[in-house]
Design a protein around this nucleic acid. Structure first.
Length: 272
DNA sequence: TCCCAGGCTCTCT
DNA sequence: AGAGAGCATGGG
């Protein structure tokens, strides 16, 4: 992608396969919102930024060249060739339709701990409420910065009790959040190591955390540890597999399960 | 009001 | 190994 830095803004000129609304509001991340002027804002890696689309470009403000290079280029997965991937997986007609409907969704490479914590919260829950719980977690236990609150560190959460978490109204998930924070803080779970570990071994390790089963583990691997071969199966995906794919993932998906899963998730959720 | 939500744990066969 | 109840909370 063609990047330009001008007037304290970052211009992604004529972006390919990058739609802000599709990417930021498709249920993979829970801290992005759009205001009445169409401007998206959010916080990740302890930094607040704003993004908007104008004249076919994406404009990032509130950031700088160093952060773009060190954080956002990877966060928005800018080096991945989505056009080629879409072409490869579109051998299957239903996948092609889902990919077309989901055009512009990119996988966000999120912070491992934030992904772990967020997807623990996601279980047996709906997206609006997940967002509310995550936001209350940040407001109560994150660090105040310009624009909002950072996602609280595992170290911070590890010191809390179930009672302390009453304010975020996460229900039965509170004890799971704390167990995850404690295992990450103690080093019993090293998320950076799991990023490069054998997939099944990493998955098993994540599932030693209370409240982390197969689906949450796959989500952590996909959204937090950049493992695009992950294929999380939630109620929506299972429904789609049953109704559209004879119950199984088509072979043409190959190692891009995570991307196709995201396309199918978006497609099935917005088409009954 | 009732059903359900980007599931998992626990218990009982 | 597999099935089923229960779980906190609240959005639609």
């Amino acid at each position: 992608m063609d990047i330009k830095f001008e007037n304290n803004k970052i211009y992604i000129k004529n972006p390919k396969n990058f739609d802000l609304a599709q990417t930021l509001d498709c249920g993979q991340a829970f801290r992005w919102s759009q205001n009445e002027n169409g401007v998206w804002s959010g916080i990740a890696f302890g930094k607040y930024i704003e993004l908007r689309e104008k004249d076919g470009d994406i404009i990032i403000s509130g950031s700088n060249q160093a952060d773009f290079k060190n954080i956002w280029a990877n966060y928005f997965d800018l080096s991945r060739n989505y056009a080629q991937i879409v072409k490869d997986v579109s051998v299957n007609e239903t996948v092609r339709k889902a990919a077309e409907f989901s055009h512009g969704i990119r996988l966000l490479n999120q912070e491992p701990w934030e992904a772990l914590c967020s997807f623990i919260i996601s279980q047996n829950n709906n997206i609006p409420r997940i967002k509310g719980i995550v936001e209350r977690l940040c407001e109560n236990f994150g660090e105040k910065i310009n624009g909002g609150y950072t996602f609280p560190s595992a170290e911070t959460v590890a010191k809390l009790t179930v009672d302390d978490l009453t304010v975020i109204r996460s229900g039965f998930r509170a004890k799971y959040i704390i167990d995850a924070a404690q295992k990450v803080t103690s080093g019993e779970i090293n998320l950076d190591v799991l990023k490069h570990a054998d997939y099944d071994a990493a998955r098993e390790k994540l599932m030693t955390i209370k409240g982390v089963g197969p689906k949450v583990a796959d989500c952590v691997l996909l959204y937090g540890l950049s493992r695009i071969e992950a294929f999380p199966r939630d109620v929506w995906i299972n429904r789609a597999l049953d109704n559209l794919f004879d119950g199984k993932i088509p072979d043409c998906v190959g190692n891009y399960g995570g991307i196709v899963q995201q396309y199918i998730f978006h497609y099935i959720r917005n088409n009954q």
